[in-house]
Design a protein around this nucleic acid. Sequence first.
RNA 1: GGAGAGGUGGCAGAGUGGUCGAAUGCGCUGCACUCGAAAUGCAGUAUACGGGCAACCGUAUCGAGGGUUCGAAUCCCUCCCUCUCCGCCA
Length: 519
Amino acid sequence: MAGFASLSASSGLAAVGRSAIDTGTAAHPIRSRRNPHWKCEAANGIARPMHDIAYIRANPEAFDAALKRRGEKPVSHLVLERDSERRRIIQEVEGLRSEKKRLSGCFGQLASLGQGHTEEAMGFKIESIEIAKKLSVAEIELEKLDNLEDLLARLPNIPADDVPDGADEEDNVEVAVWGEKREFAFEPREHADIGPALGMDFETGAALSGARFTFLRGDIARLHRALAQFMLDKQTRENGYTECNPPVLVNNEAMYATDKLPKFAEDSFFGASERSRAQLFWEAMPTDFEEQMAQTEKGQFKDKMNAFFEAAPTKEDFWLIPTSEVPLTASVAGQIVDEPVEPIRLTAHTLCFRSEAGSAGRDTRGFIRQHQFEKVEMVSICRPEDSEAEHERMTACAEGILQALGLPYRKVLLCTGDMGFGAKKTYDLEVWLPGQGAYREISSCSNTGDFQARRMNARYKPEGEKKTRFVHTLNGSGLAVGRTLVAVMENYQQEDGSVTVPEALAPYMGGVEKLMPCP
RNA sequence: GGAGAGGUGGCAGAGUGGUCGAAUGCGCUGCACUCGAAAUGCAGUAUACGGGCAACCGUAUCGAGGGUUCGAAUCCCUCCCUCUCCGCCA
């Protein structure tokens, strides 16, 4: 596979620069008909943006108020203005098309009678060409208004009513605390300190790949695997999730569907073949490329080229998934599923890849924040009326893992300022790390409502109704494997630097009851 | 990677430039016949967007994008996907 092979090529694997995001707006000089960028064309039947325009029309104030809770500026006036303009032009375009169709039918009728060269026929033909000219003008105008979709695609989900207002994690609300924090007879150490002697080799990871990569060796690698197996078995055997093994390289549509695009490209990795990079750049060049370059002043040339490169569309690219929420959720993209009387519950254990460009400097030490990590993910697809209950259930499924492993944690309801882009409501589970003396996020369970379903056009037809409805989608970690390993290390550490294996993992450890440090 | 064949409505499957959103069959829904059912007959049966209180009207969609043409499911170009054979490979 070309795309995969090229991942190792230096120019083939890249974190997208921030400027690629900022230039992707309405004024984008590169957007063109042949360059749909990462906007999904509605034509493919899968893709569509956004918020419910009909809702915004009916409730502009409520919409803006909701956005304000998330720290966004009001946009409804802008949206509605563009919307009405768009509808006006749609009417114009459709009227012209209709007329053109009629004229060409008239001509055709005459032509089929062998009267294609009569004055009457030529009249139809000429008039039709005239209409076509007007039509193409109107169509271009309509196309310009497509940025309404961009605008909507960049707006976050509306928070649920019971989500607390707040600016950042300080304003999150603790809703439950579970487990007894262990009393240590010695000073508990951080995992990064006891890890190296147990086979958690940061140096080799860094040598092979760079910062935020780790090489696990020996029993600790086995423990890591055991954790993943344990979680997966629990979610499939006890909690009713269907085990999946999805691709970890996905296309734009899947990323867009799960709201990782267009806004968070900088957090992701992507791979592309050399051939397609070249082609993408070619497609990204604005039609007036030569003109623009001619006007570029000395010394600005490099910047200009850079801007073109970074804004190059990612169309044929593969993205490395930041979470298997992406392929699991997008697996129903574009579909009309059977009414999910019982929610569709999917789980997978996969690698995840994150560039985390924005968090440089945080957790640089240790195994907490890696570019590559493993996670067991839960995804539910359900009816709107079931999503709140399903959200509670899913969170409980994640909690069940922590409880089975005997790891103390607390459950936090995220405030508006700390929630993810696509979330309507989110619970975080934070595990107690005695070495750090802090609670750290180990799971995040979100209800996205119909936000993702709208983006990917995933619907169901309720029994006895004619119209389809959007499904609701939920996702949650159950759990992040690497961070769970960290939690086990810190909570089960002994004074001599060894780590006791939690009982629940015994069936997966082949008789290993304790990780012993190498001297 | 090479060679070939394909991609049309819920399914099967016609359609190679003109009223084709698309024959026909199956499926599904309603009605008729029937004591009831089967069989039969008749009628209906895609989605999205825009307009309209509504009946309804308009537009788009035959894998995707572009082109030729007064007019494209049909012709041309590019791409994607599926299948068969060969090669390579975990």
